[in-house]
C-alpha cells in the first residue's frame, strides 16, 4: 500500500475555480437529457472547451458545441473555431437564423439592437428549440455586469426562454436542483465565479489557444465617435473621406466586428495582455457597443432570452 502523503496540498484560487467548474460540467452530463455547450469562440469559450475536455477524459465530451453565427463575426474567429474543432474532435453545430439572413438583417443596415435581437437572441432560441436541448452551458461570468451578479449557476428559463430574476431557485452548497418541467430549460454557467483576470491567468497557466485578435497586431481600423472599429471585410461602409488606417490594436472582448471596439495596445503576449489588464482602468464590457444604450439594457436583454 502506498504511503499516504502527510501534507495536505493547498489548492490555489485557480485550482478551486477549475474544480468547481468541472463539477458543474459533470453535473450537467449526469442530469441533462440533451445538453449542449454554447461556444462563442471568445476567451471564455476557449476556457469552457478546455474544461469540457478535462471533465470527461479519457472519453470525448458527451455533448456537442453550438455556435450561433450572426454572419458578422471576425473572419479570424471563424478560422479559429474550425481549427479548434478539427484539433479536438468535438462535435460542432453551427446555427444561423436563416429568416434573418434572408431579410438581410445586419448591424449596419438595421442597427446593433435589431441585429442582436434577430441574429443572436432569436437565433439562439431557434437552435435550442430545434435541437431539443434542455441544458445549455454558457461562459457568462457574474463579474461581467451588475445584473449578472445575482444569476444562478443553473439558471432556469420558462418554455418561452424567459428569465425571471424574482423567481430564481435558491442554490446551496454545490447541490443543484436540475429538475425541469415540460418545455423548461436551464442555462448553466460553470464560470460564474471566475473574473476576467482569472480567465487570463488560467489561459496562461494551461496554455489554452485563443483567437489571435486578443493580441496586438497592425490591423486596418477606422475611428468613429472615439472608438476604433476594424475593417474586417468590404461590408463596412466607409464614410466620405474615411480611409482605414493601420494601427497596432487588439481586442479585449470579441463579438460582431462592426460592434466591437479595438483598443490600441502593444501587448503581443499573454504576459503583456495580463499586465495591461491589471493596469487598465476600464471594465470589460466598455468595448461592447450594445451595453451603452441604456443603464440596464443587459438585464432587459436577459429577461427576453439573451444569454
Amino acid at each position: 500500500m502506498a504511503a499516504r502523503p502527510e501534507r495536505v496540498a493547498v489548492m490555489d484560487h485557480l485550482d478551486r475555480l477549475e474544480a468547481e467548474s468541472l463539477h458543474i460540467l459533470r453535473e450537467v452530463a449526469a442530469t441533462a437529457h440533451r445538453p449542449v455547450l454554447l461556444y462563442s469562440i471568445g476567451k471564455d469559450s476557449s476556457v469552457l472547451l478546455h474544461l469540457l475536455l478535462k471533465a470527461f477524459r479519457p472519453g470525448r465530451p458527451p455533448m456537442p458545441l453550438l455556435h450561433i453565427d450572426t454572419g458578422w463575426k471576425f473572419r479570424e474567429m471563424i478560422e479559429f473555431r474550425d481549427r479548434r474543432v478539427a484539433e479536438t474532435g468535438v462535435e460542432l453545430i453551427v446555427h444561423v437564423n436563416e429568416e434573418g439572413r434572408a431579410r438581410g438583417i445586419g448591424p449596419i443596415s438595421h442597427g446593433a439592437s435589431v441585429h442582436v435581437d434577430v441574429m443572436k437572441v432569436a437565433a439562439l432560441k431557434q437552435a435550442l428549440d430545434r435541437g431539443g436541448f434542455d441544458m445549455a452551458i454558457g461562459g457568462a461570468r457574474r463579474d461581467e455586469e451588475k445584473s449578472r451578479a445575482k444569476e444562478r449557476v443553473f439558471s432556469f428559463r420558462s418554455a418561452q426562454h424567459r428569465w425571471d430574476p424574482r423567481n430564481q431557485r435558491p442554490e446551496l452548497w454545490n447541490l443543484y436542483n436540475t429538475r425541469l418541467g415540460p418545455g423548461e430549460s436551464v442555462r448553466v454557467f460553470p464560470l460564474s465565479n471566475w473574473t476576467e483576470l482569472d480567465v487570463w491567468q488560467y489561459i496562461r497557466r494551461e496554455a489554452i489557444p485563443v483567437v489571435p485578435l486578443y493580441f496586438a497586431a497592425e490591423r486596418p481600423v477606422v475611428e468613429r465617435d472615439g472608438t476604433l472599429i476594424m475593417v474586417d471585410d468590404a461590408r463596412l461602409p466607409l464614410q466620405p473621406g474615411e480611409t482605414p488606417q493601420r494601427r497596432r490594436v487588439r481586442f479585449r472582448s470579441l463579438g460582431c466586428y462592426p460592434l466591437t471596439a479595438a483598443l490600441e495596445s502593444a501587448a503581443t503576449t499573454l504576459d503583456a495582455v495580463i499586465a495591461e489588464m491589471q493596469a487598465s482602468r476600464q471594465s470589460e464590457r466598455a468595448g461592447r457597443v450594445l451595453d451603452h444604450s441604456a443603464g440596464t439594457s443587459l438585464e432587459q436583454k436577459k429577461r427576453e432570452g439573451h444569454f
Binding site: 457574474r142 430574476p165 424574482r166 473574473t195 440596464t296
Partner: peptide, 19 residues
C-alpha cells in the same frame, strides 16, 4: 444590481462580488 432593487433601495437577492 437589479433594476427593481435599485428603485426600491433594498437588496433582495444574494449578489456575488469578486475582487
Amino acid at each position: 444590481g437589479l433594476q427593481d432593487e435599485r428603485e426600491q433601495g433594498i437588496t433582495i437577492d444574494v449578489a456575488w462580488r469578486y475582487f
